[in-house]
Nucleic acid binder design. Structure first.
Lengths: 201, 201
DNA sequence: CTGGGATTGGACCGGCGGTCCATTGACTCC
DNA sequence: GGAGTCAATGGACCGCCGGTCCAATCCCAG
């Protein structure tokens, strides 16, 4: 090479790379995150990235970890915090479901376990209840990944139609109709309450 | 081309393509399923595939649908059927979590809704309870995607260590220790029972 | 027998994640 | 202050992927 670009003054760092990744994910969704997009945004080459991040999977995990912020609020608030994080970053649901061993999921586990322990659970009961709640939250997270509002509505309508078509019972019909107009957040919280009743009963 | 291979006697069909995809997934996991692998196994070219299947996503959804078989057993057995299907086809968990609108998930929804309705639930209560259970089952499904036994053990040990390290309380320590030695299937069923208690209570 | 529509399959394309390595600039040591 | 060292840089390159295209071929209706 005849002429090399002089070393940048704004040094690359894992932090800046993760920050750029989060911005790209927020703006363009999961599909928009390519290492080329990241390096373009940081105005650098691809090789440089790999001195700070092992690979794309690790970058995704780091982005999710960067975005999941949990205090030590009680269990319902904890669950809602996860829900709201996914609401703010739609790509997060898919990412949390992708790998159960990533740091962000580990932090959710720890928070849930701690809160359940404060509720008096121990031993196997604590393990079972923790797994149930974490799995519920992550399942709900994954389900919320609807790309856009129209697609989500299509999905719910298809579901309602199939369900309704299978049983002429007016009660089933009513339930199917309700599907299209429910509030995700309220329904999520209702699920948490079902769970809480289940462990206290 | 001077000489074209004569038309195959064993005609290509969507069924045969899906069957090949399931076999490849079972043998080599998610990463092993490429359209090239499918066409190689079927001894055909790639273009032919697209006369029967729209794209890879649809093929994956069809494979999942092919493998999820649910009778109309009561709710606990229904949940266990999903669990066992994932046990038999480890790639299934990830696939079910990938797209909430795919046929396989629709069928799970329908089964859960039907059974809950038989338990006497209607209206919003039915919707909330159904969503809670389906989300739990799919969350548990996604979490079971551990590639091999060793990796899964590493994960559980890391989780136990983090959790234990955060609180010297002997009860927490005990719960952390339990993590490494629990039975997935029993724990899954315990989670179902928690939700069922919460629903009926 | 023949024409035309459906099927086949291989060449091709753009883009991806990841690797490699010559070049560079910033520190260290004297 | 000068020289040597070494991590950081970034662009060329690789193999592979999903998907498209279309000439060649077969099957069937008339």
């Amino acid at each position: 090479m005849v002429f090399m670009t002089p070393r940048r003054t704004d040094a690359l760092s894992r932090e800046r790379i993760v920050e750029a990744a989060v911005r790209i994910l927020d703006e363009q969704g999961e599909g928009g995150l390519t290492l080329r997009a990241v390096t373009d945004r940081l105005a650098t080459g691809r090789g440089a990235i790999y001195h700070h991040v092992a690979n794309k999977d690790e970058l995704l995990a780091a982005a999710a970890d960067d975005v999941v912020r949990l205090g030590d609020a009680p269990i319902r608030e904890l669950a809602l915090a996860v829900f709201d994080a996914i609401d703010a970053h739609p790509w997060l649901g898919a990412q949390l479901a992708r790998d159960p061993a990533q740091p962000a999921v580990l932090r959710i586990w720890k928070g849930v376990g701690t809160q359940l322990h404060r509720l008096g659970l121990t031993g196997t009961a604590l393990g079972d209840a923790g797994a149930a709640l974490v799995n519920y939250v992550l399942g709900a997270a994954a389900a919320r990944r609807a790309p856009d509002e129209a697609a989500r509505k299509d999905y719910l309508e298809a579901l309602a139609a199939q369900w309704a078509g299978s049983d002429p019972d007016p009660v089933v019909q009513e339930a199917a109709a309700l599907l299209s107009e429910h509030d995700d957040r309220a329904q999520f919280l209702a699920g948490v309450d079902i769970f809480l009743r289940g462990i206290s009963g």
